[in-house]
């Protein structure tokens, strides 16, 4: 009796998980199939999931048109440097909130929470206007000849350095929770041994915060890579942000290669999307286990 019951529960669970898993994977499967199907296959109503004449020619053209290797390299460098800054700045701020007592601490931490809840969209206009005429002490004019740093990557770096990058509030929160969970004795021991505050932070706390660092790094990498809001707002060049290139891929193909058929265009777009998500996917598969453990151990839970 109990055996039957257990089997049935297991079956239910398997069914639900497979169903939901399929829903998650289906777009990816669909894109893979459509991107390797030949024109013949796409118009064959009997074709489902397994193309008869698989071909990689779509990828070849897309790689050429997107200037894939160069762009993705640039994008990855851009994202990786931003992630490094995010981890450094947010962990510092989180540590400051977790381990030091100073006046107005509660109020200031309330501001961090506010930062998480206020959507970027509310303040996009002032930020746009600010960077459009950005010229502190005439530095920008001296270098570029005219004020404003739109269309470059500088605004994104500036905001990230000042702890206001893509979802920085959340990262500060995660680090704060994690540092608060670490035993105070570690720092006391360091202090007794003669380590200064900064030494303690860099050489002891940051090393101990590995799960939180991995969590934030993965989140930051992925969200920065996927971000289109900021790159649209700051008019960052297509050559740096590859996800922007995908959205214009269809029109590029229509113009340059005279591919006007919507179905075929979609095949190329799918190939493009797959190429774009490939690095993130590989990274995720490598870091996946540590990432999930990290989330569970770091104090994202609050």
């Amino acid at each position: 009796m109990i055996k039957v019951k257990r089997f049935l529960i297991g079956l239910m669970r398997a069914l639900i998980l497979i169903g939901v898993g399929y829903t998650i994977l289906s777009p990816i499967i669909g894109m893979i199939v459509s991107s390797i199907a030949s024109t013949e296959d796409i118009y064959n109503p009997m074709m489902f999931l397994l193309p008869k004449h698989p071909t990689m020619e779509k990828y070849a053209l897309v790689i050429e048109r997107m200037d894939y290797y160069k762009t993705i390299l640039k994008d990855l460098i851009y994202v990786a440097t931003l992630t490094a800054i995010q981890v450094l700045v947010c962990s510092m701020v989180g540590y400051g909130f977790a381990r030091f007592q100073f006046p107005f601490k509660k109020l200031l931490f309330g501001c961090v929470v506010l930062m998480i809840t206020i959507p970027m969209h509310t303040i996009m206009l002032p930020i746009y206007v600010t960077f459009k005429s950005f010229d502190p002490f005439g530095i920008v004019t001296a270098i570029k000849g005219s004020p404003g740093i739109m269309g470059t990557v500088v605004p994104m770096y500036l905001m990230t350095i000042l702890g206001c990058g893509v979802r920085s509030g959340l990262y500060i929160y995660i680090f704060n929770q994690f540092f608060r969970g670490l035993p105070k004795e570690i720092e006391e021991a360091a202090l007794v041994d003669g380590a200064g505050t900064w030494y303690t932070y860099f050489r002891i706390m940051l090393v101990n915060a590995k799960p939180a660092v991995i969590t934030v790094a993965v989140f930051s990498l992925v969200w920065q890579f996927n971000d289109t809001f900021y790159s649209k707002l700051f008019l960052v060049s297509e050559d740096v942000v590859i996800s922007k290139k995908v959205s214009s891929l269809a029109s590029v193909l229509a113009n340059q290669d005279k591919i006007l058929n919507v179905t075929i265009q979609q095949q190329y777009t799918n190939a493009g999307i797959l190429l774009v998500i490939l690095p993130v996917l590989v990274l995720y598969l490598i870091l996946q286990k540590r990432f999930i453990e990290g989330v569970e151990r770091s104090g994202i839970v609050g």
Binding site: V20, G21, I24, L25, I28, V222, F225, N226, D227, T228, F229, S243, K244, V246, S247, I273, V276, I277, V280, L281, Y284, L285, Q288, F291, I292
Partner: peptide, 14 residues
């Protein structure tokens, strides 16, 4: 791993 994929693939452009 499959279930956290949406976090990774959550992009407006895509």
């Amino acid at each position: 791993a499959i279930f956290f994929l949406p976090v990774i693939l959550n992009s407006d452009a895509l």
